[in-house]
Simulated scan of single mutants.
Amino acid sequence: MTERIPLLPDRVRYQLGMVDRPMYAHGVRKAVELAAALDHRGVTVVEFGVGTGGGLLALSRHARYYEAESGLTVRVTGFDSASGLPPPVDYRDVPYAWRQVQ
């Protein structure tokens, strides 16, 4: 997915949360801030359940941005079992919101 307003500078888009998957950007930012406060040289961010890879790509874009901003190394790792979600058991699994990938 492309960024929402590509005409704005990255710094402004990140400040306003106008990026793809802003919750991922927030997590990366907080991890980088904590690593800097603890005087670490870098941080690793992880996505579990990569699925089709869209989230991992967004996480990588955010990592590149915050790596350039902070000067710290930001490594990205993703894990997936490739088996998909287990079948729903009851309504609490929200079966109408998740599709089975074939």
Rank of each mutant, 00 (worst) to 15 (best):
R75S: 12
L72M: 03
E33L: 13
F48K: 04
L38S: 07
L59A: 09
Y65L: 09
H62T: 07
T73P: 03
R64I: 01
A58C: 10
E33A: 11
H62C: 03
H40S: 10
V74M: 06
G53R: 02
L72R: 00
A35L: 01
G49S: 02
L59N: 04
A63T: 08
L38G: 13
L57E: 14
G49I: 02
Y65I: 10
V45W: 03
S60D: 08
R64S: 10
F48T: 12
L59M: 14
A36E: 14
L72N: 02
A68S: 07
H40R: 13
A68V: 04
E33M: 12
G71L: 07
T52W: 05
R41W: 08
G49Q: 01
E67Y: 07
A36L: 15
L57W: 11
Y66C: 00
V43S: 03
S70V: 05
T73W: 07
G54Y: 11
L38K: 10
E69S: 04
A31L: 01
S70A: 04
S70R: 02
V32A: 02
G51K: 10
D39I: 15
A36D: 14
L56S: 14
E69C: 00
A58T: 10
T44Q: 03
S60C: 08
E67V: 01
G55Q: 06
R41T: 14
G51T: 09
F48W: 14
G49E: 05
L34T: 15
L38T: 15
V46W: 10
R41M: 08
E67A: 14
G53D: 05
G54Q: 14
S60L: 12
R75M: 06
H40N: 13
G54L: 11
A68C: 06
G51L: 09
R61N: 11
R41E: 15
A31F: 01
V32E: 00
G71F: 04
R75Q: 13
E33P: 07
A31K: 00
A37G: 10
E33V: 02
T44V: 09
F48M: 13
R41S: 14
A37E: 15
R75E: 15
A31V: 00
L56T: 12
T44I: 04
S60K: 11
G42D: 03
G51W: 08
G42P: 03
A37R: 11
A35N: 01
A35C: 04
R75T: 13
G53T: 05
A58W: 07
E47V: 06
A63R: 07
V46Y: 13
G53S: 05
V46Q: 08
H40D: 15
A68M: 00
